[in-house]
């Protein structure tokens, strides 16, 4: 049985990410390699979903892992999940790349494929386990609001991109996303 199988069997993380981060902070490169082995594939998936290009997605994961290494000493296990901390670093890298590439990426055909975008965010929603609160609360939003919120988190779309897709004024989209977020926060807390 591989380690991955075991993780799925038990529903528990098979590795202690927080301990690995601590080892990274102590200068143990093997610990970073273990984190890469455990999360690299999923990280690439997250980056690919946002950046839409394999080369950019790989750059983002590579940079994120180096940042994880550099910042490992800042991670505080009291504050939250180690895995979440790693994905926050990755998402921030992706967003930075996405925003700085905006002018080029926004006009590329793959960026404009609205049907593909809709498919990606619907898949993300469908894959959320039925039991999660996030799924239950997202179900409580109207479809358009749900899609707007998902396309910002999953695809990294900006307010402007969402407004473009919805053919709605920017200001309306902003207040509309905010209402959705408020509803979501109330439902989730």
């Amino acid at each position: 049985m591989t380690e991955c199988d075991r993780r799925e069997d038990t529903g528990q993380p098979f590795m202690d990410h927080a301990a690995l981060l601590k080892s990274c902070a102590g200068g143990d490169r093997l610990a970073l390699q273990k984190l890469m082995d455990a999360e690299g594939g999923r990280m690439l998936g997250v980056a690919r979903r946002m950046l839409r290009r394999d080369d950019l997605a790989q750059d983002a994961v590579q940079e994120a892992l180096v940042l994880v290494w550099r910042k490992a000493h800042q991670f505080d296990a009291q504050r939250g999940s180690a895995k979440g901390w790693i994905y926050t670093i990755l998402r921030n890298r992706c967003l930075t790349l996405l925003r700085s590439e905006d002018r080029e990426v926004a006009t590329s055909p793959e960026r404009l494929s609205a049907s593909e975008d809709a498919q990606v965010i619907d898949t993300a929603f469908d894959r959320l386990a039925d039991t999660t609160d996030l799924r239950r609360c997202l179900e409580g939003l109207d479809v358009q609001t749900r899609r707007a919120i998902l396309s910002s988190y999953v695809l990294g779309h900006s307010h402007g991109e969402i407004a473009g897709r919805m053919e709605a004024p920017l200001g309306s989209v902003k207040s509309w996303v905010r209402r959705g977020l408020l509803k979501l926060r109330e439902c989730l807390s």
Binding site: R42, R49, A124
Partner: peptide
């Protein structure tokens, strides 16, 4: 964070 787990696991 649960949305991160909905991404495909790709091969590095």
């Amino acid at each position: 964070a649960p949305l991160d787990d909905t991404a495909d696991e790709l091969e590095l």
